[in-house]
Nucleic acid binder design. Sequence first.
DNA 1: ACCTAAAGTGAATCTACAG
DNA 2: CCTGTAGATTCACTTTAGG
Lengths: 381, 381
Amino acid sequence: MKTESTRRAEPRGLASRELPLNQILAGDCIEVMNSLPESSVDLIFADPPYNLQLKGDLHRPDNSKVDAVDDHWDQFTGFAAYDQFTREWLAAARRILKPNGAIWVIGSYHNIFRVGASLQDAGYWILNDVIWRKSNPMPNFRGKRLTNAHETMIWASKSENSKYTFNYEALKSLNEGIQMRSDWVLPICTGGERLKDDKGDKAHPTQKPESLLHRILIGSTNPGDVVLDLFFGTGTTGAVAKMLGRDFIGIEREEAYREIATKRLERVRRLDAGALATTTGKRAEPRVPFGQVVERGMLRPGEELYSLDSRHKAKVRADGSLIGNDVKGSIHQVGAALQRAPSCNGWTYWHFRREGRMVPIDTLRQQIRAEMQAEDTPRPN
Amino acid sequence: MKTESTRRAEPRGLASRELPLNQILAGDCIEVMNSLPESSVDLIFADPPYNLQLKGDLHRPDNSKVDAVDDHWDQFTGFAAYDQFTREWLAAARRILKPNGAIWVIGSYHNIFRVGASLQDAGYWILNDVIWRKSNPMPNFRGKRLTNAHETMIWASKSENSKYTFNYEALKSLNEGIQMRSDWVLPICTGGERLKDDKGDKAHPTQKPESLLHRILIGSTNPGDVVLDLFFGTGTTGAVAKMLGRDFIGIEREEAYREIATKRLERVRRLDAGALATTTGKRAEPRVPFGQVVERGMLRPGEELYSLDSRHKAKVRADGSLIGNDVKGSIHQVGAALQRAPSCNGWTYWHFRREGRMVPIDTLRQQIRAEMQAEDTPRPN
DNA sequence: ACCTAAAGTGAATCTACAG
DNA sequence: CCTGTAGATTCACTTTAGG
């Protein structure tokens, strides 16, 4: 396995240097991939059409119409056509993956079983299936099925013996000391993050949240890695990759999406090296992980936190750890070190500035807890 | 869709009466299923071998053993054998399912994608994929992957137009009044529920928790339904089915498991009817034509009805239709037309005035329903 | 400006039955 | 098979409107 310290063991070949880095390539993803050199990218992310096969309109109980995914790119004549499409892009993708490369694919029950089986047949080796549990899904309006509250992602290496990248400690750190599980609770993409067109409508019907890609890229790539997105859309993968200091290549067929993504990417700023460094040591601790505050964008990597008396400050890092005065670690550890105290509750010690005021980060934890309580009701039967 | 009130609409055929109810049948599940009459069971639950790593034993439908192979080139052989086994039991299961029957299959990423694709290919219609999120999973000891903290279930009807059973209100009630989502947080089977053998070791490696089957059977069967478990194991499905007043059939190849399950089932007691009753929605109520309200003199022809905000009004006619603003038709049609909405539930939209208050006409329907129930209930004289 | 109420919205395979 | 109609059905969150 490649780890944080050994990731440079695999030298970039000549072919890799010729890659069209940090660009959006126009065209069909299979054709474009076939024009790229083999064994040249570290990670592929694919959010292919789901083949939803929707029939009539759907109305909410208040009679408003649900804005469905009826785009032409989601139309297939049947399972056979969809399977062939899937097999072809999976094969092309595997060719350009480095031997130790990996792939992430996201889908729903409409397509994910077919994609998963084709992926296994193509020689990929599944590492985990990961559930994106949506904290705020669209309900089932007709009361005819369960609320479709999740999507499924498959994480697979190029082959069974690939030394894939897995930043175990960074993910554990994002989860405040507890192993990251295969189910990730994250909100869908709404609000200011959701891109709008000229008319104020959503620019893309299926824009993914940056928090999802943040966790994927932190966990399965290193800074400087090349991340390829086969169905780039509005460029969420590119935006997060750029922010996190990874190189990206996007492939997108629709010009409208390419234009939106290009503008979006111009606004993204790369984090500095300090914010990008991730924890390699060990830690442990309790309930709501501070990493979720970062993943959810409540605090930005690179943002500064202050003690209430402003005597100490520290910088937020991408994996949910802090760095202040050369001390790295959890919000608790850094707070304790700077005070030369044996311990410190980072949640109440650290504050961020909003509109001139100092706000304790514990308010952000309370927000997350409120959401978790709403979405998470374990019941022993 | 079958609801609580209509589930008896589908008569049991002669064949159904010949089913070996509440028994554990010995043998290979495909052969046993082929000996059962077609279109005879309401629900099938299947917890098939997960094909873990293809390293353990895998048997073909003819009971011959597949040689486990680690060689890369032989992987396809492994998948092919597993796929054939899957297709055969799925086909046999579909034959004995009633037209409105459904199936649940549980698996992990090792097999669930292949099972799901085969299931779609066989003509089943996926209703939901459901995530069993384990509240207490085994951690990943080597730190090389994410903690595998969930399993995936697929819920599918026999065909696209099956009127499958879905007890929406009962599940909503289980979830404290909020509609049930596709992710279920439940603990794994441990403690006193976990069956032990003579030596005190776990009797079965993958015993499922009763809470899981409880939710499945409450949500997708009615009392008296026939539930078939193809890989019965220690009989969790049978135990929960018996407790919930469903009939079960179990198929199990291993004698040791059949013995354990038999003992287990003897200890299970069937709940009484009062405990079995579940919440039902309006769909289960008998239909009442608005004309009956007029016939019974609860509203007079010529009387005016109003929307709650009094923006629209309409006049009752002798035949139980309405006329408002030159639009004539049913209470639903006139309500929809006046609001320019695609549809409208006239029962809740229209109100009449009594003693200065606005009363929804649905209260009149409820009165009629109450009288109908009183008539149906024989009174001891 | 600030608080509250109302409206809007999200990858959705979303009805049952009489005639 | 088809068509037409009765009539049942929503959660979490954001944005906008109104006071």
